[in-house]
């Protein structure tokens, strides 16, 4: 669909200047206190809460006309959420867009960190549904705020311990809590714990925006981020024990896709750009011999993939 928008129909990057100043001040305070959730006056955006309004506001406050924007939704560039946010900024900021991680200067993401390592000069903006890592253990904001103030994180370790007591291992597989620079316990957003190691020592700036919950937090480059664990149950990443069926990658995070009603299934890279890149270089997995790309394949499943951000 082609859309003709009059030049100047929107102020650059949609938000008014006073709103952007407020968000920018919150981002800078977030950078100064890594892992601390800065309250901000989240605005109504032209999309519902739960669709990345926090990330969109942070991206809008950071974008410059020279940026090249990439938007991913659980690793994919071409799912509904990613497409609509990318189009939103094409329309309101006129920025160039890309699907290549290496070419992007700003990457807005829902629930994944790209497989391709990020570099200095890039900004990774996370969409966050529930920014408070302690929220499901303690519903009162007054209490969780006090717990962060006093560095009272014992409850989180009790939760992880109960995981071990019940399942024999830490069963938290996404939104795995981390400690930032030895001070704040932080929710890394619902990324799979497979991605947790990429949070630490990352050369890119990582910004987190929670629109409905009105919080912004940040990780400056090279920040130390440690996944919580126990000496006798150290943190471990996890992924499906398969190779990608399209590109054959052994070390990427995989989505399981049901292919028929006979129990057939396949595993494909969740990061579509990474998978495409490998296939373009000639790598092929179990089912990767034909010309069907992961992208067209993913498209055929659009609509039945769950998109409920708040669900846990």
């Amino acid at each position: 669909m082609t859309e003709h928008i009059e030049a100047g129909a929107y102020t650059f990057a949609y938000l008014d200047e006073q709103t952007k100043r407020m968000i920018r001040r919150a981002i800078l305070k977030g950078i100064a206190v890594p892992g601390y959730q800065v309250p901000f006056a989240s605005r109504e955006m032209p999309m519902p809460y739960g669709w990345g309004t926090g990330g969109v506001q942070v991206t809008a406050a950071c974008l410059v006309p020279e940026d090249r924007l990439k938007v991913i939704d659980q690793g994919a560039d071409d799912t509904t959420n990613a497409v609509s946010i990318r189009r939103f900024f094409q329309r309101t900021a006129g920025v160039a867009t890309t699907e290549a991680t290496t070419e992007a200067t700003v990457i807005q993401t829902r629930h994944r960190i790209p497989e391709t390592p990020l570099k200095a000069g890039q900004i990774l903006v996370y969409q966050v549904p529930i920014p408070e890592p302690l929220r499901f253990l303690e519903p009162r904001e007054t209490e969780t705020r006090k717990m962060h103030e006093l560095e009272e994180y014992g409850l989180m370790h009790v939760k992880l311990y109960e995981d071990i007591a019940r399942h024999g291992q830490i069963a938290t597989s996404y939104a795995y809590p981390v400690k930032v620079e030895g001070r704040y316990v932080m929710d890394p957003s619902p990324i799979p714990r497979f991605d947790n190691p990429k949070l630490s020592g990352n050369p890119a700036i990582q910004l987190f925006g929670a629109g409905r919950e009105q919080r912004i937090y940040a990780l400056p480059p090279w920040t130390e981020v440690v996944s919580l664990d126990f000496d006798d149950h150290p943190f471990q990443t996890s992924k499906a024990p398969h190779d990608c069926d399209l590109c054959g990658a052994q070390d990427s995070y995989l989505d399981e896709v049901i292919t028929d009603d006979q129990g057939g299934r396949m595993f494909v890279c969740s990061d579509t750009d990474f998978c495409e890149g490998r296939r373009a270089k000639g790598h092929a997995g179990r089912l990767g011999g034909d010309q069907k790309s992961s992208k067209t394949f993913a498209n055929s499943f659009e609509g039945i993939w769950p998109g409920t951000e708040g669900a846990r």
């Binding site: 102020t11 650059f12 200047e17 952007k20 100043r21 406050a61 974008l63 006309p65």
Partner: peptide, 8 residues
């Protein structure tokens, strides 16, 4: 809008 974005 543009100048403040670049400066920020």
């Amino acid at each position: 809008p543009i100048q403040s974005a670049r400066a920020f």
